[in-house]
C-alpha cells in the first residue's frame, strides 16, 4: 500500500516547494519594502542632515538661493491643509454615510455609492486641473470680496491669484470626502439592525436612534476612518501642488501661497541641483513617509479594535 513516490508525486512535490518559496519570498519582499524605503530615503538625504542636523525640522527658512533649508513651513502647510480639509469634509462625510445607511432605499443608495466610488477613483491630477481652472478663480474672487469686507488692501492687491492654502484645503476636502464617507458607511452598515429597531420601538425618533445607538456603536471605527482620511490628505500630492502656489515662506494667512511636504517636492525637485537642496527635499519625503506609515498603522489598529468590539 505504501508505494514509491511516482513521477507525478515528485512533480507535485516540486510544485509545492516552488509555491511555498514564492509565497514566502513575496511576503518577505513586502515587509522588506518598508525597510528599503526608509533606508534609501535616509541615505539619499544625508547631505541635508550634514548641513542642518535635527534643527531642519523646526527651522522656518526655506531658501534655495542661499541654500538654507528648514522644513517648518512645509510641515505647517501640510498640517493646516490636512486638518483643514478634514474639518470641512467630516460633517459632510458623516451626513452622506448616515443618509446612505439610514435614509436612502436601495434604489437610491446604489447609484450614489457608485458615484462616490467614481469620485474617489478620479486621479489626483484631474482634481488639480479642475482646481486650477475652476476652483482657484472662485477663491480669487472670494479673496477680493473678503479683502474689501475687512478692509485689507494687501489682500485685495496680492490675493487676486487665488492659489494658496485656502484653495488647497477646499480641493483636499472634496478629494477625501468620498474616501471618508465610504469608510464610515462601511462601519455604519455593520451596526445590528435590532439595536436601532429596539430604540425605535421604545418611541425614539429616527435621529434619536442614530444619535444614541448607531453613532456610539461606530465611534471607534469612525475615528479610524477619519485618521485614514487624514493620512490621505497629508500625503496628497498633485492636486495640492497645482493649487497651493509653491510659496517658500511661512504662511501667515489662509490666502497665502504655501507648500506642503508633498507639493514642495513635486514643485521643486526637478529644479534642485545642489546636493544640499536635493537632500533637503528627500528629507521632506522621509518625514512624509514616516508620518504616513505611523498614521496608517494607528488607523488600522483603531479600525480593527472598532470591528472587534
Amino acid at each position: 500500500m505504501v508505494t514509491q513516490p511516482s513521477r507525478s508525486d515528485r512533480r507535485e512535490l516540486v510544485h509545492e516547494r516552488i509555491f511555498t518559496a514564492a509565497g514566502v519570498t513575496a511576503a518577505v519582499a513586502l515587509v522588506t519594502t518598508i525597510v528599503l524605503f526608509l533606508l534609501e530615503l535616509f541615505i539619499a538625504s544625508r547631505a541635508s542632515r550634514a548641513a542642518f542636523g535635527l534643527p531642519f525640522l523646526w527651522r522656518s527658512e526655506w531658501n534655495p538661493v542661499t541654500e538654507k533649508f528648514g522644513a517648518l513651513p512645509m510641515i505647517v502647510g501640510t498640517l493646516v491643509t490636512g486638518f483643514g480639509a478634514l474639518l470641512i469634509s467630516t460633517p459632510f462625510a458623516l451626513g452622506i454615510a448616515i443618509f446612505l445607511a439610514d435614509y436612502a432605499d436601495r434604489k437610491l443608495a446604489e447609484p450614489i455609492k457608485y458615484l462616490i466610488g467614481l469620485l474617489g477613483g478620479l486621479p489626483s491630477v484631474i482634481f488639480g486641473l479642475w482646481g486650477l481652472f475652476v476652483l482657484v478663480p472662485i477663491v480669487s474672487k472670494f479673496e477680493v470680496w473678503f479683502g474689501k469686507l475687512v478692509g485689507s488692501e494687501a489682500l485685495v492687491a496680492s490675493g487676486t491669484t487665488g492659489v494658496g492654502l485656502l484653495a488647497a484645503i477646499l480641493l483636499l476636502a472634496i478629494m477625501i470626502l468620498p474616501f471618508s464617507a465610504s469608510l464610515i458607511l462601511e462601519s455604519l452598515l455593520v451596526v445590528p439592525t435590532e439595536l436601532k429597531e429596539g430604540a425605535l420601538a421604545l418611541g425614539a425618533t429616527k435621529w434619536d436612534a442614530i444619535q444614541n445607538v448607531e453613532l456610539p456603536y461606530v465611534q471607534k471605527s469612525t475615528v479610524g476612518a477619519l485618521v485614514l482620511s487624514l493620512g490621505r490628505a497629508l500625503g496628497e500630492t498633485m492636486a495640492v501642488t497645482m493649487v497651493i502656489g509653491n510659496g517658500m515662506k511661512m504662511p501667515t494667512t489662509l490666502f497665502d501661497p504655501a507648500n506642503t511636504l508633498a507639493s514642495a517636492i513635486a514643485n521643486q525637485f526637478l529644479e534642485a541641483t545642489s546636493p544640499v537642496y536635493v537632500g533637503s527635499l528627500i528629507q521632506l519625503a522621509l518625514i512624509l513617509f514616516v508620518i504616513a506609515i505611523i498614521i496608517n498603522i494607528v488607523a488600522r489598529v483603531i479600525l480593527r479594535r472598532g470591528v472587534q468590539q
Partner: peptide, 8 residues
C-alpha cells in the same frame, strides 16, 4: 482526485 494530485 487525479487532477488535483497531478496524475495524468
Amino acid at each position: 482526485g487525479y487532477l488535483l494530485t497531478g496524475q495524468r
